[in-house]
Nucleic acid binder design. Structure first.
Length: 1087
RNA sequence: GGGCGGGUAGCUCAGCCGGUAGAGCAACGGCCUUACAAGCCGUGGGUCGCAGGUUCGAACCCUGUCCCGCCCACCA
């Protein structure tokens, strides 16, 4: 990094080199230091761990750049900074990807190759993608500490998972129970609600007839029930009727009447129609339903068709008399509501699971056993029809749950699963046991709610908005299903065995290894109620033994297996390990012995310095998108409080989401994703980062129109407007587009065989590149003029006006940038620096100072003036580089090296703090450079210069032509112009300049009025043009005059508006009148 | 169905504790002025989704309404 800056800005020429300098200097390493233990001396960011399923996309780029910007900003402020990187094993997602490839490439399923071989393959996949992710992050400039890189399934994080599980299990906060879960039939695992998305499907209501067994005279021979999933009838346990149909119906009617009374005029018709329907129904259907309710009470049975199984007719309030036939079939094992009915009628009803894990019907389904669920549906409908039991079919649009990973429809499915108990528990939950911050909380969800409510965790930039969704989600306190029937993940460390009665259990308990520190055992019933092993148990139960340390798995596992216990085959939900991330990465529970990899940072205490856990927990800020506020953020807060006694971070920065040109979420699977590396290749990394920072305003999501160059004709295609191609079946193909020019189809992912493909990009990044280019060239100009510059203390008072103005504006920009960062508004922060740099430093100062630099050596005074200018230039560049650095680190670092080479000591009154690397340089501190009075004067001068330029431009005068100029007005206003006469002549290219109260109008002059000043530029006049222009200005002023006069004539305004507002209007009126007078004079002068 | 957010210049977004509508890009006119044509100088362009209300005064506050997006719940 020596010699001059290359003439053109080429980011590729220095990006790699800059990265290497940072790494060589260990600039991003976090070193625990007891002196920095205070919260305000540390800054800790835990990277939201990307999944190892694939490469990073634009959303990650946003997330990573925001974190990097904050981290660099704090590092420059001298904070002891840790940005902790790592990746997530992403259980279901990764296994799904690898299984899919296995199927596609080798035609094998996971069962063909077995658990061990599959897991081995997934590790290989993980290694490949983790390396790729790290490369991508490095290219983006992420200043995280690579010597601490973690993976949720590495030995360090796994130890934390075991300890957390053991603690929760021992506190009875983890239990196993039979529950209805969302079942993914393809991946054959439970999926969480959060992993399910809903899609509208055109379906049907099938109205089925079930025969009544031995109806009494006057009773119906059939009941009719409706369903959207006919195959579930095989598992029906009952048909339900409302216990009091009339009363329920009357209540509905009363509600509708109340609603009608309160409704607006336009809403009435709809409500009236509904009310009529209900009333008609009360007459037509309710008597029959009352009869059915009576039949139910009388114990009448129904014959379930196809299965010829008798099922009871029961009364339950779940049946809604106002809907359908008023009767509902009950399938407890395959519908959440029906499950609720079953819970209320457990003695009368049996619960029948009719599905195998793969979605085929099981042995309980008689002739339908073995059929796939949708084949079964068709056959059942056909068979019912053949039996004359299909009453009718109705079209029905319905929202159907799909598994996020396999994209297949999920089934509600009854199975045994492990849960974390979220609700409050009797006796409370002991949190932070063994730490200095131990406390007792009501329950796991509640401790996180409390932390958010009392401000220990705050959301930014709009705190209130997300506090509500955070606490209301947690407020449901729904148990968290943590078991997944997968092979990739942390295997549940519990061995268990079911017992029919207590005697056998006793014999086993007597032989359990007595190692209370390494084992915890409970006896559990099927509902998940756990009791101590010495409790008196009657009836069936299950012995559950949790093994604390993985090192004991083999030894204790064997002992347990010898007693007939079996290890649970399931693995933990991936969010379980992510929830531990803020401390698992730091070596909890045992920093001193954390099994780090070779070459990695030791996590324990050493050389008198604190351990990493002590040093960096709790962290400072969590940076993420709002979509995982609940899934991840809430659970980290919860587990942080539970295990450490303290929140894992105090601030949560929720950033915007990047959408495509149509306002849709970007993703690879939608074919509108953009790879950050493609953007970096095309525009440079700083350009990408610049735009990402600029996009992050408030919480507003931002659209990023996406383009591609057509591989057929080369035309730029706006993907927001282009049509998609068609698949063979005639459906829209989201992964291809048709060129808007040549109409030919192309692909944007490179996955369509035999089709030309194009890289996707967005021209918004050009703006970032332009800014970097400007910075590069301005730096070249400064460095070119700097020579080898030494430092001499200067007093502010001795500087030229423009020097003091620049420093004043610099200080204003510094303050604005810093404040915006404190407010989590990167867009305002970067704009403050950009506007100063471009609009003030480049557009004005560099131009103003050129004559001083060229005059160097012409006299002692000129030399001194040039020297001052150079020193100011060096300081301005220095500060601009520092302020820009957190946003665009590469270019600033590259220029910094050259600046340091030429001017190692920079400053005005005294030298600024020095640093070899910009990334380790001190963030600019407040300076006493601000001078608002001077800024006001300078702004007035700039206005004059602009006005003269405007006159020139109006008459198309060649910029090279030097023209005479005269300015007249009141003495006080002329003073400012006189002070800047030198600049005015130079910037507006004047041959002569007259400034006087009665300055003569030059011949053939174009004119302008600026406040109380009249400006004339000679030798330009085109009388017609000038007259037309003056009249245009006159019309505009007239409008202002009228509205201002109207305001001031308004008694209410004068009486009620604040005095300063009234004064401002009066001043505006006076000014407008004066200008109109001048315009009139000028018009007259043209005659 | 419930909740949240957004609709401001051709595009992407600021402004929103009320007081003469802003930026960048695009467009138009003029300049290759020895840092930068990825640049410089200048110009045009918006009844601030729609309708009411509060106010002396509304892009901003309130009510309603229409679109768009997100989250949650649920539909036998």
């Amino acid at each position: 990094m020596s010699g001059e800056l290359p003439k053109t800005y080429e980011p590729k020429a220095f990006q790699q080199q800059v990265t290497e300098r940072w790494l060589e200097a260990g600039a991003f390493n976090a070193n625990p230091n007891a002196e920095d233990l205070r919260a305000d001396k540390r800054y800790v960011v835990m990277m939201p761990l990307p999944n190892v399923t694939g490469a990073l996309h634009m959303g990650h780029a946003m997330d990573n750049v925001m974190q990097d910007m904050l981290t660099r900003w704090h590092r420059m402020q001298g904070d002891n900074t840790l940005w902790q990187p790592g990746t997530d094993h992403a259980g279901i997602a990764t296994q799904a990807v690898v299984e899919k490839r296995l199927k596609e490439q080798e035609g094998l399923t996971r069962h063909d190759i077995g658990r061990e071989a599959l897991v081995e393959r997934i590790w290989a996949w993980k290694d490949e993608f983790q390396a790729r992710i790290i490369r991508q992050q490095q290219q983006m400039g992420c200043s995280c500490d690579r010597s601490r890189q973690r993976f949720t399934m590495d030995a360090v994080c796994s130890a934390a998972v075991r300890e957390a599980f053991f603690k929760l299990f021992s506190d009875k906060l983890i239990f196993r129970g039979d529950r209805l879960v969302n079942w993914d039939c393809m991946l054959q695992t439970a999926v969480a609600n959060d992993e399910v998305y809903h899609e509208t499907i055109q379906g049907h209501f099938w109205h089925l007839r079930y025969p009544v067994i031995d109806p009494k005279p006057g009773e119906p021979a059939f009941v009719i029930v409706a369903t959207t999933r006919p195959e579930t009838m095989l598992g029906d346990a009952a048909v339900a009727c409302h216990p009091h149909p009339t009363a329920a119906m009357q209540k509905k009617i009363a509600e509708a009447e109340a609603k009608l009374a309160a409704a607006d005029e336009k809403d009435r018709p709809a409500i009236e129609v509904e009310l009529e329907r209900l009333k008609a129904r009360l007459v037509e259907k309710i008597p029959a339903l009352e009869q059915l309710a009576a039949m139910a009470r009388d114990g009448r049975m129904i014959k379930l068709p196809l299965m010829d199984r008798p099922i009871p007719l029961i009364c339950d309030e779940w049946a809604k008399p106002e809907l359908g036939s008023g009767l509902v079939k009950i399938t407890p094992a395959h519908d959440p509501n029906d499950y609720g009915v079953w819970q209320r009628h457990q003695d009368e009803l049996e619960i029948r699971n009719i599905l195998k894990p793969d979605g085929c019907l099981n042995a309980l389904c008689g002739p339908y056993a073995g059929l796939e669920r949708y084949q079964a549906r068709n056959k059942i409908v056909a068979d019912m029809d053949a039996l004359g039991l299909l009453d009718h079919i109705e079209d029905h649009e319905t929202e159907v749950g799909h598994s996020d990973r396999s994209k297949t429809i999920v089934e509600p499915y009854l199975s045994k699963q492990w849960f974390v108990r979220m609700a409050d528990v009797e006796g409370g939950v002991n949190c932070g046991v063994g730490t200095r911050k131990a406390f007792k909380g009501a329950g796991l969800a509640q401790i996180a709610i409390d932390a958010a409510n009392d401000g220990r965790v705050q959301f930014h930039p709009d705190g209130e908005r997300y506090l509500k969704s955070f606490t209301s989600w947690l407020g449901e306190k729904r148990d968290w299903c943590i078991s997944r029937q997968l092979w990739w993940g942390h295997r549940i460390p519990v061995w268990s065995r079911a017992f029919e009665d207590a005697s056998e259990l006793k014999a086993v308990l007597a032989q359990l290894p007595a190692e209370p520190d390494a084992l915890k055992a409970w006896i559990s019933d099927s509902e998940g109620n756990q009791q101590a092993i010495d409790a008196q148990i009657a009836g069936p139960c299950e012995l559950q033994v949790c093994v604390r340390f993985s090192k004991d798995d083999e030894r204790l596992g064997k002992a347990l297996e010898a007693l007939g216990l079996q290890r649970d085959p399931d693995v933990l939900d991936t969010w379980f390990s992510s929830a531990l991330w803020p401390f698992s990465t730091l070596g909890w529970p045992d920093c001193e012995h954390a099994p780090i990899l070779e070459g990695q940072r030791f996590l324990g205490a050493q050389d008198g310095q604190p351990s990493s856990l002590e040093m960096y927990y709790p962290g400072s800020c969590l940076v993420t998108g709002r979509d995982i506020l609940t899934l991840w953020v809430a659970r980290m807060v919860m587990f942080g409080l539970y295990t450490q006694g303290d929140v894992p971070f105090h601030d949560v920065f929720l950033h915007a989401k990047i959408l495509d040109g149509k306002g849709e979420t970007m993703s690879k699977s939608r074919g509108n994703g953009v790879d950050p590396v493609d953007i970096i290749d095309r525009y440079g990394v700083d350009a990408m980062r610049y735009i990402i920072c600029e996009m992050q305003t408030g919480i507003q999501d931002v659209r990023m129109p996406v383009q591609a160059d057509c591989p057929h004709c080369g035309q730029v295609v706006d993907l927001g407007r282009a049509k998609h191609g068609r698949t063979k079946e005639g459906h829209e193909n989201k992964f291809t587009y048709c060129c808007t020019a040549c109409k030919q189809e192309f692909d944007v992912l490179g996955t369509m065989k035999g089709m030309k493909s194009a890289k996707v990009y967005s021209d918004r990044f050009e703006i970032g590149m332009f800014t970097c280019n400007k910075l590069w060239n301005a730096a070249r100009f400064v460095l070119m003029n700097l020579g080898d510059l030494g430092f001499e203390p200067l007093s502010l008072a001795n500087l030229e006006t423009e020097d003091r103005w620049l420093l004043s504006r610099l200080e204003a920009a510094r303050a604005a940038c810093h404040q915006a960062l404190c407010d989590y508004n990167p867009s305002n922060a970067i704009s403050a620096v950009r506007d100063f740099f471009w609009s003030e430093m480049c557009d004005w100062y560099l131009e103003l100072v050129k004559p001083r630099l060229t005059a160097d050596g012409q006299s002692d005074a000129a030399t001194a003036s040039a020297k001052k200018a150079r020193q100011v230039l060096a300081v301005a560049l220095d500060q601009v580089l520092r302020l820009f650095h957190p946003f665009i680190p590469f270019i600033t670092e590259a220029i910094w090296a050259q600046l340091c080479a030429q001017a190692p000591v920079r400053g005005i009154e005294k030298p600024l703090p020095a640093s070899d690397l910009c990334t380790l340089a001190r963030w600019p501190e407040p300076q006493a450079w601000r001078n608002e009075a001077l800024e006001t004067q300078f702004a007035a001068l700039c206005e004059v210069i602009r006005t003269v330029r405007e006159i020139r431009a109006r008459y198309n005068v060649a910029p090279k032509a030097e023209l005479p100029c005269a300015i007249r007005g009141p003495e006080a206003s002329l003073e400012v112009v006189r002070l800047g006469a030198r600049h005015l002549s130079h910037m507006a290219n004047l041959s002569s300049l007259q400034i006087a109260v009665d300055a003569a109008r030059p011949a053939h002059a174009g004119s302008a009025v600026l406040g109380d000043l009249e400006l004339f530029v000679g030798d330009v006049l085109d009388e017609e043009k000038e007259r037309a222009r003056l009249m245009g200005v006159q019309a505009k002023l007239q409008k202002t005059l009228e509205s201002t006069e109207k305001k001031l004539a308004n008694a209410g305004f004068l009486a009620k508006a604040p005095a300063d507002v009234v004064e401002a209007q009066k001043a505006l009126l006076a000014d407008t009148k004066a200008q109109l007078a001048l315009i009139a004079q000028n018009l007259k002068a043209l005659d």
